[in-house]
Design a protein around this nucleic acid. Sequence first.
DNA 1: CTGTTAGCGCATTCAA
DNA 2: TTGAATGCGCTAACAG
Lengths: 329, 329
Amino acid sequence: MATIKDVAARAGLSVGTVSRVLSGSSKTSADSRRRVFAAAGELGYIAHGPARSLRRSRTDVIGLLVSDIRNPFFSELAHAAEREAAGRGYTVLLANADEDPMQEAGYLRAFAGQRIDGLVLAPQGGDSPQLLKLRASGLPLVLVDRTLDGVAIPSITTDSAAGVRLVLDWLRARGHHEVAYVGGPASLSTGAERRESYLTGRAEVGLSLDPALVDEGDFRVGSGAEAMRRILGRGARPTAVFAADGLMTLGAIQALRAELGDASYGVDLVAFDDLDWFSIAWPPISAVRNDAAEIGRRGVAALVDLIEGRQVSSQRVPVTFVDRAEPGA
Amino acid sequence: MATIKDVAARAGLSVGTVSRVLSGSSKTSADSRRRVFAAAGELGYIAHGPARSLRRSRTDVIGLLVSDIRNPFFSELAHAAEREAAGRGYTVLLANADEDPMQEAGYLRAFAGQRIDGLVLAPQGGDSPQLLKLRASGLPLVLVDRTLDGVAIPSITTDSAAGVRLVLDWLRARGHHEVAYVGGPASLSTGAERRESYLTGRAEVGLSLDPALVDEGDFRVGSGAEAMRRILGRGARPTAVFAADGLMTLGAIQALRAELGDASYGVDLVAFDDLDWFSIAWPPISAVRNDAAEIGRRGVAALVDLIEGRQVSSQRVPVTFVDRAEPGA
DNA sequence: CTGTTAGCGCATTCAA
DNA sequence: TTGAATGCGCTAACAG
């Protein structure tokens, strides 16, 4: 690989001048510029990133640690975050915690080693020692999707309470009474918040308060099926099911099919998260549209603001409701 | 941030010894080890990755450039690749070409700048100048999912021909004659190969050869819908639809619903790629199971072999067929 | 087994 | 506007 020295030699200039031309950091003569670009082009010169990072003590890389890249919510978020970062001159190093605090800790360490300029994180519950250490080190940090209580880190989250409110209103309008709730883990702010909003709101809209109707999973397909199975196993026969995320919705439907057979087609479904295939599912799945792309974009924008010394504050991203139910049902 | 010098000072040893202890590269006394670990722990020392990379002229990072991270096939592949790499001591830098050769070129350049140790690539068709340059530079390179003709780069691909064969047999067994084909872009090896296999195999199993039944998209949802719409627009009324990937299948179904209404429920569906929600779709979607995780794992394994100087050869990953159709239909 | 030191490639300071 | 020289943090070569 050609180095800056090679370019300098070929251009008949010093490395200092080459560096200045390529970075545009200070005045250079038109002649120098011409010669440098010519030499660099001929040699196919590409600056050595690690050397640059070492010297400048910044990497122009931000980390993005998501919970589960196979969850469409996060792949959408990651995609949008990456686009936003590219537009602002940063590269995204993407990692996947697999909903596992141990893996999260490992990546936090790896990110620290890479000397990323900042981190966008969808945290796995509790504030791990690794995370506290990172934070103490002054690394710019923004949380997405989930918050961590007890620590004042800016966060970009969905307005879960508003989303649940929309679901409750819809359930009432459709005349439901026995509604099953497949929630997320209480250890995550999203799981706790949606559950809390749902449970306290249930009474107001006249839903059954039977605890047998409520169970929880971990935001992955299999856990949604298991939770649904437990609910049915307790003898509950809900007329509608509300799942706290898109993947658990799939699991819940699988369980309904397996346990109830054709009767499952009569159960109304509503989800927090709108996946693209919901549009063709049967029975139709109504959903709170949880704007993953917007969360990703805002997360990166906030992080870049932080890195560049600007103030940022936490934000809630609004939600909308997509009603796909048959009018009559 | 603490440096190796700080650790050395605190441990009362030289930086050389600290480096040796931490890397385990050569014999060190038990006493040195104890003191180094103690000092490093107290200081929260984490080695500076860029400096390390500069000195060692390797980064222990491999690039993974996929076509579309929102496509479940690739998010599954990426997830498996990342796990495999972690097990072998490498970090994955994931990037997303968005099915766009220009973005691909940009990332190839960025990767070169980061001095990644190797690259796993799902190429966007033609061999770009950037790619040829990378290859000429001697960067270890493995293609996944798609090949590039004219260049001898090891590849890990799905056995498309075998998959299509399974679909053809299934179509014949179900007694179809008018079958629509929503293919992938001819510019990609997967698109070309599946189309070729399908078109030549059609005759043998007695399917209609009507060109109106064949169209193509770009492996994304919207394009599948458009292709299906064009097929229907030509007056074709297929009894079954075969789509060349999972996302286009969704698009095709959306179009069938929109254009044919309830009649669409009578159309048999079969896809190349099996997505998890296919299990609950209606009408049922049968599919060739395209093992993204296995491709990701093998791609990384092959790349690491290449990096470490071992020989590798191209591989085809076998497919299986998931028949979900109603027996009678 | 350990200490000392050169130098990886680059940006930047200091002189000119 | 440019060249020369320094040092970022680390590993490895060398000497002891």
